[in-house]
């Protein structure tokens, strides 16, 4: 299933709805990269709340999403990593590197506002 990507002002919000295969993760990466350009987005949020596993491939792909987005002028925040998932990632030795994270969607939006220095403008901008 394709991950739905919601456009909210200058931001893109990708809400993962179910467990993703490697292929679907790569599709999300490509979709986000394309839409950052199409919508001239300055920020991307990837909501991973429903993921009960984040293995090495998922982490690598999320890092790629953030790096590609950055090269396209958008900041990425990963939100909703569950405590058990964080625990397993640390044990496995996985790190998100310099990818920004936030507790939930609300915190993620606030962080993007800070990073893109746009204040509340994402709400009112077309």
């Amino acid at each position: 299933m394709r991950v739905p990507i919601l456009k909210q002002g200058g931001y893109l919000i990708a809400s993962i709805q179910s467990a993703l295969s490697d292929y679907e993760l790569l599709q999300l990466r490509d979709d986000l990269s394309a839409q950052v350009g199409r919508f001239r987005s300055r920020g991307v949020i990837v909501d991973v709340t429903v993921l009960d596993v984040m293995d090495s491939f998922a982490v690598r792909t999320l890092r790629a999403i953030a790096q590609i987005g950055h090269m396209r002028g958008a900041e990425t925040v990963i939100v909703g990593i569950q405590p058990e998932v964080a625990f397993a990632m640390v044990q496995l030795g996985l790190a998100l590197g310099d990818v920004e994270t936030a507790l939930d969607l609300e915190e993620g939006l606030a962080l993007l506002d800070l990073r893109t220095k746009r204040g509340e403008s994402h709400v009112t901008e077309s």
């Binding site: 009960d52 596993v53 293995d55 090495s56 058990e84 397993a88």
Partner: peptide, 26 residues
Amino acid sequence: RELAQQAGFNGSDLTVISTAISEVAR
């Protein structure tokens, strides 16, 4: 994860087990 749950595992153990399975399957 399902079988681990039936075997009485819970919480972070379930996540740890399914992450390990994911890695060896990959």
